[in-house]
Amino acid sequence: MTDAELDSLFEAARVSAPDPSAALLARIMDDAMAQAGARAVPDPAPAPQRRPGGSVRRRLLACVLAGLGGWPSMAGLATAGVVGIWIGYADPVGLDAVTTAMLGGGYGPADLAPSLDTFLQEG
C-alpha cells in the first residue's frame, strides 16, 4: 500500500468523524453551568471554635436543623406554628367554611386536636 492510498483512508476517516449528539452537548453545557453556579456561591464561613460547654446541644440542634432542611425549612415551620396558635386562640369564623370544604361537614376543628378525655375518665 502506498502513502497516497493510506492518505485516502485517513481522508475517509476524517469525513466520517462522529458528530456530537445534541444530548451530549446539552450535558456538557449543564456541567459548565453547574460548575459556574457552584463557584458563584461563596464558601460557607468557617465554623467558629466551639466552647466545650454546650457543644453537644449545638451539634444536636445542627443535626435536627439539617434533617429538617436547614433554616429555610425552620422559617416555614415557624410560620406554620404561629398560624396554628393563632387559629387555636382566635377561632376565626371563616375557618368552619374551610374545614367543611376540606373535610366535609362531619368534622370540626376540635376533631383535629388530640383528646385526653379517654385517659381522664375514671374507670
Binding site: 468523524a17 462522529p18 456530537p20 451530549l24 452537548l25 456538557i28 459548565a32 453551568m33 459556574a36 463557584r39
Partner: peptide
C-alpha cells in the same frame, strides 16, 4: 467562562466537543 460568561461556555462546548469526541472515539 471563568468569570461566569455562559456564552463563552457555549462557544467552547461547540468548538471543542467535536474534536475531543472524535479523538476519543478513534
Amino acid at each position: 467562562y471563568g468569570q461566569g460568561d455562559a456564552r463563552a461556555a457555549r462557544i467552547l462546548t461547540l468548538r471543542l466537543t467535536p474534536r475531543v469526541l472524535s479523538f476519543a472515539a478513534r
